[in-house]
C-alpha cells in the first residue's frame, strides 16, 4: 500500500518523529502514534471509517513538545482543522506533514469513502417535532416559521445531558478554559441545562472556527443535530464576512479590527 510506504519514508527519513494514523486493535479501528522505533507497525496502518480527532491529538503532542515533528493522516476535514489550528497558533505548520486521504468527493476523485456522506436516518418523531439531521439550514429556515423553529430547536436542546462531548471531541476547541464551564454562564451541577444558553454559547464560539467535520454530532448521546446548527453558523459567517474557516490561514473576522468588513447595524423593524 502506497500510504504505508509513504508513512514509513516519513519516519525513516526523520521527516517526522511520530506519525498519527489508525490501526486495528482487538477488532477496533483506533488511532495510533507510529514511531521510527516500531516502524514495521505501519504495516497495520488503516484509514479507518471511524474518524477520531487526530488533529486534537497532534495538539496534545505539540503542547508537550513544541518542536516535535508530527505526521498525520489527513482527510479533507483534517486539512481544514489543521489550517485553523495553524491560524490560531496551536500547531506550527513547519512541524506538520500530512498524508492525504481521499474522503469527500472532489473534482480530482469521483468517489469518497467518508461515512458522513451517507444521509443519517431521522426518526418520524424527530421529523415531526425536532430538527432533521439532513435538512440544510436554508431549507429549515424557509420551511418553518419563527415559532416552529424555536420549538423545534428547544425540543432538541432540552435533551442535552451536558456531557460536553461536542466540545471534547471538537478538533478546533483548544481553549484552556471553556466558557461552557463558566459558572456565571452555565450553572454547574444543574440538569437539564437552561435552554438554549449552553448551545448558543457554543454556537457563537464556533463562529469563524467550525470546520464542519461532524464529529460533534457523532459524539452527541442526545442526537442533537449539531452539525446542522454549526452549518448555519458557518453560513452566517460566510454570508456576512465571506470567511470560510479552515479554507486558508487567515484570522477570523472576529479577531480583526478595522476596515476589512463594512457593516451597518440592521434597522429595527417594528
Amino acid at each position: 500500500m502506497d500510504m504505508v510506504k509513504a508513512a514509513k519514508e516519513l519516519l525513516l527519513q526523520d521527516k517526522v518523529d511520530i506519525f498519527l494514523g489508525y490501526r486495528k486493535l482487538d477488532g477496533h479501528q483506533i488511532p495510533h502514534g507510529f514511531t521510527k522505533a516500531h516502524v514495521d507497525d505501519l504495516d497495520q496502518l488503516e484509514i479507518s471509517l471511524n474518524r477520531y480527532p487526530l488533529e486534537k491529538i497532534a495538539c496534545d503532542l505539540a503542547q508537550k513538545d513544541p518542536a516535535l515533528k508530527i505526521g498525520i493522516l489527513a482527510r479533507d476535514c483534517s486539512q481544514r482543522a489543521l489550517n485553523l489550528l495553524y491560524t490560531w497558533d496551536q500547531l506550527n505548520p513547519e512541524n506538520i506533514e500530512t498524508l492525504t486521504v481521499n474522503c469527500c468527493p472532489s473534482p480530482l476523485s469521483t468517489h469518497g469513502d467518508c461515512s458522513y456522506l451517507t444521509p443519517k436516518p431521522t426518526g418520524d418523531y424527530k421529523k415531526a417535532h425536532g430538527v432533521d439531521y439532513n435538512d440544510s439550514p436554508k431549507d429549515f429556515l424557509a420551511n418553518h416559521d419563527s415559532g416552529e423553529r424555536l420549538s423545534r430547536w428547544m425540543y432538541e436542546f432540552q435533551k442535552c445531558i451536558k456531557c460536553y462531548g461536542c466540545r471534547n471531541v471538537c478538533p478546533v476547541c483548544f481553549c484552556k478554559e471553556c466558557s461552557l464551564e463558566h459558572p456565571n454562564l452555565v450553572e454547574p451541577g444543574v440538569l437539564p441545562a437552561e435552554v438554549p444558553i449552553f448551545h448558543l454559547i457554543r454556537a457563537t464560539h464556533m463562529a469563524g472556527r467550525c470546520i464542519d467535520c461532524g464529529l460533534c454530532e457523532d459524539a452527541c448521546p442526545a442526537h442533537i443535530p449539531l452539525r446542522m446548527l454549526y452549518r448555519e453558523v458557518n453560513d452566517a459567517v460566510s454570508d456576512i464576512f465571506g470567511y470560510v474557516p479552515g479554507d486558508h490561514i487567515e484570522k477570523s473576522p472576529f479577531s480583526i479590527i478595522g476596515k476589512t468588513v463594512e457593516l451597518t447595524p440592521a434597522p429595527m423593524d417594528v
Binding site: W88, D89, Q90, F174, C175, K176, F254, S255, I256, I257
Partner: peptide, 21 residues
C-alpha cells in the same frame, strides 16, 4: 497565563499594541 492558550486573537484587536506573544 494558566488559561491562555496562545491563540493570539487578542493581539489583532488591541489598538495600542500593548500585547505581545
Amino acid at each position: 497565563e494558566q488559561l491562555c492558550s496562545g491563540c493570539q486573537g487578542c493581539i489583532e484587536v488591541c489598538p495600542y499594541n500593548a500585547i505581545q506573544m
